[in-house]
Amino acid sequence: MPLLEVANLRTTFRTEDGPVTAVNGLSFALQAGETLGIVGESGSGKSVTALSIMRLLARNATVTAAGVTFDGENLLQKSELEMRKIRGYKIAMIFQDPMTSLNPVLTIGEQIAEAVRLHLGASKREARDRALEMLRKVRVPAPEERLGDYPHQFSGGMRQRVMIAMALSCNPQLLIADEPTTALDVTIQAQVLELMNELQRETGAAIILITHDLGVVAEVCRNVLVMYGGNMVEYGTAEQIFGTPRMPYTQGLLASLPRLDEGEHRRLEPIQGQPPNLLRLPPGCAFAPRCAYRMPICDQPVPQYDFGEGHIARCYLYDERTRDQRPAAADNVPIVAANRL
C-alpha cells in the first residue's frame, strides 16, 4: 500500500474574475521512503497540490478529490483538530522562504521544542534536548549557544537548516519540501541538499520535493512528476524523464535549458507562447496551444499512456489512432508502443 495516494484532486479558487483552477484532476501515489520530485513552472499547481494535501489553503479555495489517502486514512475527511495532530508530526513541511516561516519573536530552541512537546508529549527538558540533538544533526555550528538565538540572527542557509531540524524533529513519515533551496545560493544549496539526502537515509522519511529546478530534481529524486496547467503531464523515474521524455512539454523544457556541461554554443530552443490562463483552461491538453505537434484531437481530454516500467505521459502523439494524423514536425518524435490507461 502506498504511503500517500492522491486521486483526482481538484482545487479551485473563487476570485473576482471567476473560478481559477489551480489543480485539475491530479492523481499520483508515493511509497514509503520514496523521493518524488514535482516539477513545473509558476502556476502549474505544484505548491497548491502540497497545500491541498496539508489542508492549508485559504477559505476561497475548494478542494475535491476521490481521495487523499495518507497511511490508510482520508485526509479530506479529517476535522481541523485531527489535521493539526498530523501536521508537523506525521507530515512535515518546509517552505521556500525560511524567514517568513519562522516566528520572529520566539527563539529557535523554543520553536523546535514546541512541536516536540505538542506531538510527542515530551517534557520541557526532553524537548530542549531533542531540539539540541536536531540542531546538531543539521550541523548548525555551536548548537548549545544557538538554541537561544532568534531567527534574524541566522543566515538564510542556517535558517533553512533550522526549518529542516524542526520538520524532522518528530520523525515524520512524509516531508513535503516546497522549493527548499530556491532562495539559497548554490554553494549553500549544495549543503542543504546533501543534508536532506543524508537525513532521509537515516530516518527513512518519504520526501516530496517541489521545485522548478530540473537540476535539483536530477540530483535528488528517484521519481519525477511533471506538472503543467494543474495536472500531471508526465511521470517516471528520473532516468526515464531526463533520458527518454515523451511529453512534448518535458522535451521542450529540457531543450530550453542552458546546461553547465554544454559543449559548443548551440541556440536554445525555447517553448513558444505563454503558460495557460488558469481562468480558462482548455478542455483538452493544456499544453496544446504551445505545442509544435498539435493535432485536432488534442482539444479533447487526454488519457494517460503507459510506456512500461511505470513511465506515464499524457499525450495523443502516442495513441495508435493518431499515427496517420501526426504532423510533419513530429517526425523526429519516435513512435513508441504505449498502452492507453
Partner: peptide
Amino acid sequence: ALLSAIPIPDPVLE
C-alpha cells in the same frame, strides 16, 4: 566549488 555545486539536469551524470 561553485561549478561543482550546480546540479546538471541529467541523473546519470549527476
